[in-house]
């Protein structure tokens, strides 16, 4: 990760003997940063450009809306994951991560579908669903911050609890659900764009404002990236980190509403989304100026993953390739991030 302007200044103000090599190294690091950042955008542009030429109708409004719809669940889950990573730091072992977020969606979808089937009205069912998601987030927060368990382990345990709870509720079968809200979400449109796609558009806007343009968002970054400094500045680190898990829990339940609308009920297999969510949240880093997780970057990653699957299908390349390409992307991102870190130290 880049040292940032303040840190660079501090180095330059140091010993004159070390001045030149450090500056050169920092400049090189900055150069690599820039290369990666530009490289990421260029790579995306090249891939999308190729699809737009090779695949008929790739950039048509309907296809773009299709991809936005197909990316909505992934995007919203990945926003939750991004918040947790921002607040907990990017260390792979000890940093922030919420492995329960996809399973959370599964159990929340089961709650939504079963409560609708139990004859509960839409608002009450939504409240129950969001409540379940928030509760799961709160359990994560308690385990990580209250008990001090590594996020990786705490959320892994909660993931298992969620998977178990979903199985108990659904008996591992599909639970069909139909209600006015579900029909509105699955087939309603506004300004020619489906309600489903609007969900992602509005959620993206809200999260971008919250994380990138508010004092709360700035402090969230401080808590994750510069823990000691944030502590010294008097920020309540625990509260910020706890909030990130609770909001991630809420994201799980919001995605559950979308999932029920999309699949006409609750269907097993929600946890299959976990790896794509991690990919989207981590890959988003290459789209940020300072190589940190951002909502915009995560959104771009989620859409890029969606466009890849869509584009490959449109040009009739086997869907089996998409998994391989996703794997290569993760490898590229991780290695590029490590490379910059090494160059920057």
């Amino acid at each position: 990760m880049s040292l940032g302007p303040a840190a660079t200044g501090a180095v330059q103000a140091g010993s004159p003997h070390r001045d030149r090599p450090q500056t050169a190294r920092t400049a090189r690091a900055g150069g690599i940063d820039l290369m990666i950042r530009v490289g990421a955008y260029v790579a995306v542009a090249v891939v999308l450009g190729y699809f737009s030429v090779a695949a008929h109708g790739f950039f048509s409004l309907s296809n773009v809306v299709n991809v936005v719809e197909q990316s909505a669940i992934l995007g919203i889950l990945a926003f939750g994951m991004t918040l947790v990573v921002i607040a907990g730091g990017m260390n792979v072992v000890s940093g922030g991560i919420d492995l329960s977020i996809a399973a959370n969606m599964g159990v929340c979808a089961a709650v939504f579908a079963t409560s609708i089937n139990a004859g509960v009205s839409d608002p009450v069912a939504v409240a129950l669903t969001l409540g379940a998601g928030l509760a799961i987030g709160a359990v994560n927060a308690f385990a990580v911050i209250g008990l001090g368990v590594l996020p990786l382990l705490a959320t892994l345990a909660v993931m298992n609890v969620c998977i178990g709870a979903e199985l108990v509720l659904t008996q591992n079968t599909v639970i069909s659900a139909a209600s006015p809200l579900i029909s509105l979400m699955s087939s309603g449109t506004f300004l020619g764009i489906s309600v489903y796609a609007w969900f992602l558009i509005v959620a993206s806007a809200l999260f971008i404002v919250l994380v990138q343009y508010t004092r709360w968002g700035l402090r969230l970054y401080a808590v994750g990236a510069h823990r000691e400094a944030a502590h010294a500045a008097g920020l309540p680190i625990a509260k910020y980190q706890a909030a990130s898990y609770v909001i991630a829990g809420l994201c799980g339940s919001l995605a559950a509403l979308l999932s029920v609308a999309r699949l006409s009920g609750s269907s097993p297999g929600a946890n299959d989304n976990l790896l794509p969510v991690i990919v989207a949240a981590l890959m988003g880093v290459v789209f940020s100026r300072r190589m940190v997780p951002t909502i915009g970057g995560t959104l771009l990653s989620a859409l890029f993953i969606g466009f890849l699957a869509n584009g490959f299908q449109l040009i009739n390349v086997s869907s089996y390739w998409v998994n391989g390409v996703q794997g290569l992307l993760i490898l590229a991102v991780v290695s590029m991030t490590s490379l910059t870190k090494r160059a920057g130290t």
């Binding site: 296809n63 299709n66 719809e69 197909q70 669940i73 599909v174 999932s259 999309r262 699949l263 269907s267 297999g269 299959d272 989304n273 699957a309 869509n310 299908q313 449109l314 869907s319």
Partner: peptide, 12 residues
């Protein structure tokens, strides 16, 4: 074996 993926594929 993923319902959501099959839906996305059918949509496209």
């Amino acid at each position: 074996r993923k319902d959501a993926k099959q839906i996305a594929q059918i949509q496209t």
